[in-house]
Amino acid sequence: MIALLLALGSSLAYGCADFLGGLGARKAHVLRTVLVAAPASLVVDLLVWPVLGAAFTPSALGWGAASGVASAAAFALLYRTLAIGPMNVLSPVTALVSAALPVAVGLLQGERLGAAGLTGLPLALLAVVLVSAGSGEGTGRPSRTALLLALGAGAVIALQLVFLHQAPSGSGVAPLITGRAVSSAVTLAAAGAMGRRLGPERPAYAVSAAAGGLDAVANLLFLLAARSGDLTVVAVITALYPAGTVLLARGVLAERIHRGQLVGLGTAAVAVGLLALT
């Protein structure tokens, strides 16, 4: 139950981070947004270091660095995907891919689900599609580039989660700190290589920093959840993050929640209840 609650918190934080990151990427080049978001994430990880501790073993450093490379790619691909849209087509693609790969890894590593889990798992994946797809009204067909970005974003998000899960359970937040340091360095190097091609527009600093901070919270909650529960269950619950985006859009932007999304939220609640019984 603790792992489930942590995964739900991670999902909500990811959804809020994506909402803010997508907004920030519309005001300037996506790398300018990530240049603010990634260091902000590192600051949050450093703040929790004295509380949760960190053991910088070779294994923790290695898996943390791998997650950092994936994180840098995830920031850029996801924010770019959400910026160009259509969101109600691309978001479920990203979420499903980000859930499917860790679930496959968990099953290959020997994790097993009971009857409730085997029912709740596909329901949760269905909920991801319903919640993130919206009504579809006035939505155009996504370009090939946008679809490839969504697939890529989902894949690197999945890799980031798997790499974090592989880090030693006694390493504290060392994998997170290492990962954020690496992702910040990779982003800075990429921005330096692009130079003037980034354009003159300044990023939305506050929004981008908030997105990075929330992403750090989401990663921390996921790491704690994965250490106390099965990756198969934690990954699929975390993949419900579009629900956080939808609820934030409803509360902040007064966007209407469509019937399909309401069904998705209800389906998600049933799926979480079933997965809690595993």
Rank of each mutant, 00 (worst) to 15 (best):
55 A>K: 05
17 A>Q: 06
182 V>E: 03
150 A>W: 03
79 Y>R: 06
277 L>A: 13
262 L>A: 13
109 Q>M: 11
239 A>I: 02
223 L>C: 06
127 A>F: 10
99 A>H: 04
169 S>F: 00
68 G>R: 15
206 A>W: 11
56 F>G: 04
181 A>L: 15
197 R>A: 08
159 L>H: 07
50 P>W: 14
41 S>C: 10
263 V>M: 11
134 G>H: 12
1 M>C: 04
272 V>S: 06
155 A>P: 01
192 G>D: 09
152 G>S: 02
260 G>E: 15
36 V>H: 04
177 I>T: 03
254 A>G: 03
201 E>N: 04
223 L>W: 09
255 E>W: 08
192 G>S: 14
58 P>I: 10
58 P>G: 06
35 L>F: 00
28 A>N: 07
196 R>V: 00
263 V>P: 01
51 V>N: 00
159 L>W: 14
29 H>F: 00
234 V>L: 04
153 A>F: 13
32 R>A: 00
265 L>V: 12
226 A>S: 15
184 S>V: 15
122 P>E: 14
63 W>P: 01
55 A>G: 03
239 A>K: 08
24 G>Y: 05
131 V>M: 04
152 G>T: 01
218 A>H: 02
54 A>S: 12
173 V>R: 14
41 S>L: 10
119 T>Q: 09
74 A>G: 01
58 P>A: 07
114 G>N: 13
89 V>G: 07
203 P>S: 14
226 A>C: 06
1 M>H: 12
53 G>W: 11
219 N>Q: 11
207 V>M: 05
210 A>R: 00
34 V>Q: 02
71 S>L: 14
46 L>N: 07
224 L>W: 10
182 V>R: 02
96 L>Q: 15
141 R>C: 02
242 P>F: 07
190 A>S: 12
123 L>H: 08
66 A>Y: 05
109 Q>L: 12
249 A>F: 01
40 A>N: 10
269 A>W: 02
11 S>N: 11
138 G>R: 07
151 L>M: 15
87 M>Q: 03
248 L>R: 04
49 W>T: 08
36 V>N: 06
128 V>I: 15
29 H>I: 00
203 P>A: 10
72 A>L: 11
197 R>C: 00
145 T>F: 12
8 L>T: 01
37 A>H: 03
57 T>P: 02
224 L>F: 09
75 F>D: 06
117 G>E: 10
92 P>G: 05
100 A>I: 10
174 A>H: 05
267 T>R: 11
160 Q>R: 09
242 P>S: 13
194 M>I: 02
48 V>L: 07
232 T>P: 04
54 A>K: 13
27 K>L: 11
171 S>K: 04
130 L>Y: 07
184 S>E: 10
167 A>I: 05
246 V>K: 07
74 A>D: 06
42 L>G: 08
120 G>L: 08
227 R>E: 09
204 A>R: 13
257 I>A: 08
73 A>V: 13
107 L>N: 10
171 S>Y: 00
27 K>T: 12
178 T>N: 11
191 A>E: 06
85 G>L: 08
14 Y>Q: 13
198 L>Y: 01
215 D>K: 11
134 G>P: 03
205 Y>W: 13
142 P>T: 12
240 L>N: 12
63 W>H: 12
123 L>P: 01
77 L>Y: 12
222 F>G: 03
173 V>L: 10
245 T>M: 12
276 A>H: 08
